[in-house]
Design a protein around this nucleic acid. Structure first.
Lengths: 226, 226
DNA sequence: ATTTTTGAACTGACTGGTCAGTGCAAAAAC
DNA sequence: GTTTTTGCACTGACCAGTCAGTTCAAAAAT
């Protein structure tokens, strides 16, 4: 029993009271808080270095927990990552859906809905840049364990955009010659890459600024004098 | 079974007289062929699994050479990867530039140039899907050894698009209110994600098909009936 | 009293990189 | 024309280090 209970430089475990108490998964609050800390630690590390280059020891250290705690809460490193993916895309999908529904409720057009979703996407990336990086980095890989998880979760998000496009085609707002699936992908790509460029290379710009630039592109107000 | 001195399937060293005999890098043809094989092996493996998850042994095996050969040709795994990046983006940049210049030579507008570059991008991704995957997966990472290489090389490619946009703004073809840098990024993203989706989820579609869908989006022919 | 976390030791598989040695085609020597 | 030498390109067994995952007794939190 040589080990001192408090190693030099160990973080003091400050207990923070967050509002998110219980319900959802039925897990105890304490456990949920630990999992959240692990998510946050893992997401930044994996965004920076990639999954394979990130060690469980690093994740535990950054989360301020012991390695054993990681394995108490998650079956494996892969499982931690998969649940992280599901968690993150769930947030995005909910946000996109909310934007589309709010626009519809307020009597906006489908273009307005698209625009609102572009903004929702930007807000999401603004808040969770690391998750976005990580997701982009993994999405088109093949032969990985969590491939199916990624597919399911991608479809969830893209389907929201496709839905709005399809509705627009049905009510004549959009040309019926557009390719819904491809156009949805292109729109997602537009926002994704523009936003990642924003965060990586011009982080000082405001969200509104970026949003208006993309709106212009989305609505074809590019040709001709301003 | 220890390998015989001539492993099965070993390439017969055919001496090919190419014009690039000497000077430049002074590399022999044999050596260059080996490096090419290593590029091809590395690009697919890293696209599938990521850099860290790909072992040098795997790369060597797929290229059909011994591990030592990898280190004879490249200083390290990282250096192999960096040179691979430079090599690939060089091809893309040349292709984009060629498309823009050809359009200009033929008296096309800047929109035509953009369209030609979209097609060039699609052709590139069609031919080198693995490289594209790999590039996307690494571009926005931080804290990696080859970060600076990626930046330089990204700028090379994006600058071509920015150039066309800027020219269009100068001669009044595009609104002077567009954000050149952000719009360029968004256009690249549009093509990138649409193409990766194409290759991943609808590989049976033709390039022309995909190109026309993107052209429509690019030219704002989305709203309104057919 | 029960759940959750800690922390350190341990294992076994795997990995990047090394290096002494091999094969061989062209150059040099004869 | 034959023999010898040269040195480039390649080989693959080997090494030192690393990492995911396990174990578990003790402590802390609820």
């Amino acid at each position: 029993m040589t080990s001192p209970s408090v190693p030099a430089g160990a973080a003091v475990p400050v207990r923070i009271r967050t509002m998110e108490s219980s319900s959802t998964t039925g897990g105890s609050t304490r456990r949920e808080a630990t999992r959240q800390k692990l998510y946050e630690a893992a997401v930044t590390l994996i965004a920076e270095q990639g999954f394979s280059a990130t060690t469980v020891d690093e994740i535990a250290e950054r989360a301020g927990v012991a390695k054993g705690t990681v394995y108490y809460n998650f079956a494996s490193k892969s499982v931690l990552f998969e649940e992280l993916l599901r968690h993150g895309v769930g947030l995005l999908t909910a946000s996109l859906r909310e934007a589309a529904e709010r626009t519809a409720r307020e009597g906006g057009s489908r273009v307005d809905a698209l625009d609102a979703m572009v903004r929702a996407g930007l807000v999401f990336i603004d808040r969770y840049p690391a998750f976005t990086q990580l997701y982009v980095a993994e999405l088109w890989r093949t032969n990985r364990a969590w491939q199916s998880t990624l597919m399911v979760v991608r479809q969830q998000a893209v389907a929201v955009v496709e839905g709005v496009l399809r509705e627009g085609v049905e009510n004549g707002e959009f040309s019926d010659e557009i390719d819904v699936q491809l156009t949805a992908a292109a729109l997602v790509g537009m926002v994704l890459v523009a936003a990642l460029d924003w965060k990586s290379f011009q982080p000082e710009r405001s969200l509104d600024d970026v949003h208006s630039a993309l709106s212009r592109l989305l609505q074809g107000r590019v040709s001709g004098k301003g």
